Structures are given as C-alpha cells and as structure tokens.
Simulated scan of single mutants.
Amino acid sequence: MTGFSLQRRILMGFAIAASLCFGSSHAQTATGKVVKVIAPIPPGSAMDQTARLIARELGAKLSTPAIVENRPGAGGTIGTRAVAIATPDGSTLLLAGQGMISIAPHMMNNLGFDPLKALVPISPVSIIPGLLVVPGNSPFNSLKDLIAAGKAKDSKLNFGSGGIGTGSHLMGEMFNARMGTNFQHVAYQGSNPMVLALVADQVQVEFAGAVDTVGLVKAGKLKALASTSPTRHWQLPDVPTLAEAGLGDDWLPYWVALFAPAGTPQATVDTLRAAMVAIMKQPETAKALQDFGMVQDTRTLEQFKPVIAGDSATAEKLITRLGLKPQ
C-alpha cells in the first residue's frame, strides 16, 4: 500500500510538473520571454502612463508577462538606442515619440544608429496636443507680450525643452526664427523636469505637451498662451491656436507609437500588430488615453508609416533652414 501510494505521488508529481511547464509555455507564446516595453522618459509622465497601459494590455492579449522599464536621458535616445540594439525577438519593445524617432537623428551627433532603419513600427498609439506655456506668475498674458519681450536686445529669457533634438526643442527654435525672438535654449532630461523647471520660473517659456501641463494651467501654476495643435484643446477652449494668432499652421504634431527592433521575425511582428489592433479598438483604451490628455491615433499602420519618414524629412529641412547645428 505504501509503495502504491509512493508511486502514485511520483506520477502525480510528474503530471503537475508537466502541466506547469505547459502553462508556462502557453503563457509566453508571443516571444518565449517576458515582454519589456522601454519608455525612454522618466516615470510619472503621461507617456509613461501610456507605456504602462500598453504593457498591461499586451500582456493580457498575449497571455505573457509584460513590464515597463524607464530609460530616460539624451532626449529619449538612450532608451531608443537600447531597443534598436536589443535582440530582435519581440521581447523588447519601445514606446517612443516623434522627437526620438524623426527629429533626434538630425539634431544629435554620433547617435550611433538610424531609428528609421533600426526600428520597425508596430502601431501608432496617440497624438499629444501641445501648448505654449509660461509660469503662472509670468508677466506675459498674451503671445504679443511674450514676443515683444523676446525681441528685446537685453532679453535674458530662456525656453526649456525635454532635451536636445526633442520636439519641444525644435518648436522653440522655430518660434525664435519665425518671431525674431532671442530665447536661449535650456535642455532638461525629459518632459517632467522641463515642466517643473517652468513652474519654478527657471525658464520663462516652453512648448510642452498638454498631457503634462493642462492640470498645472487649471491650478494656476502655469499659463497657456496658445495651442500648438490645429484645434483648441478641449479642456482649455479659451486658449487660441497658433494658427488663429496668425503664426502658421505647420507646427510639428507630436505622435507616440510602439516599435520593435528591426529584424524581428515577421510572425512575431504580425502577432504584436494583431494584439495592438485589438487593444486600440477597445473603447477603454481611447478613454484612458483621453484621461492622460492624449488623442487616440486612429490611423492604420499603412497610413502611419509614411508619416514617420515624412516628419524626419521635414525636421531635417527645418533644422537646415534654421541653421541649427547638431550637438
């Protein structure tokens, strides 16, 4: 009886082990590994929250553990490079914005890789409305006031950015060139430090994502002088657009998308894309993105691919025309 019981326990042990192994294999059918979404920005920002949303939903769709790893610095290119050189097996993904993919290569020396060649787009995710903002205690209450002060020969005003080569940097330089202002550039490591510096009046103006600034505007810690998007922000209907102010309608939009390393097997890319299509169709995804202050990007991948290269070409032309030197 004892021998029979021992044998039965051994067989049951084998059965349990086999079922656990099968369960583990089934849980990681997409890549065979835990999926890691690199967010090349500091924790806490809306883009970071978006990365966590995507990781959570991808993990659910693929029945695979998924995590977010923040790798900020150098305008987001540190995290971007980490994915560009990662093993192309679908286990390391990148949630990146336009500045990191289409602008940085033209603004940074010795980047070491070409994002357009080193990465493959999986899915567009969102568009971030932008605002031109100043500190809450700023003496400037209109674009006219700001431009006049920025043109003064003795102006010592600064504009902040999330890093060299970011969209906020290029927008500031475009503003200087178009308006004849002399705002000096101060680069920070990401959007959060940039916005905090503006709240503290360490810089006097910024082009920032509405996701990081609307709440501060409503709290009186910042003032929004203009929307950089084609339309007014739904939470700040009284703030005019740059186009309405006669400053042009060709300011660069800011998109966010999911990428994988180039060379990732097509079957894995297809699996990831199918999962993202399903995620982006969920009403709760659009609601979450809006809660973060973003607009869901409803373009198909086929519609979005040309935008990446097109924005890169536009950025290169602007940088050349503005006489900006890569740093």
Rank of each mutant, 00 (worst) to 15 (best):
S91G: 08
E69S: 15
R81E: 11
L95Q: 04
Q98G: 05
T80W: 06
A82Q: 13
P105I: 09
A96P: 07
A74S: 15
G75S: 05
A84H: 04
I103M: 02
G73T: 10
M100P: 04
P72K: 05
R81A: 12
E69D: 14
G99D: 01
G79S: 12
L93M: 10
I78T: 13
E69V: 15
A84I: 08
R81S: 10
L94V: 14
I103K: 00
L94R: 01
I85S: 13
T80H: 02
G76T: 09
G76Y: 02
I85T: 15
M107L: 09
P105R: 01
Q98M: 13
G90A: 09
E69A: 14
M107V: 04
D89K: 08
G76C: 05
G76S: 10
I103E: 00
P72A: 10
G76Q: 05
T80I: 11
T92D: 03
A96N: 02
T92A: 08
L95P: 03
N70M: 12
G75N: 02
P88R: 06
T77Y: 03
G97S: 12
I103Y: 02
I85H: 12
T77V: 07
T87S: 13
A86K: 06
A86M: 07
P88Y: 04
S102C: 14
A104N: 07
A82E: 14
G97F: 00
T92Q: 06
A74C: 14
A74N: 14
N70I: 14
G99I: 04
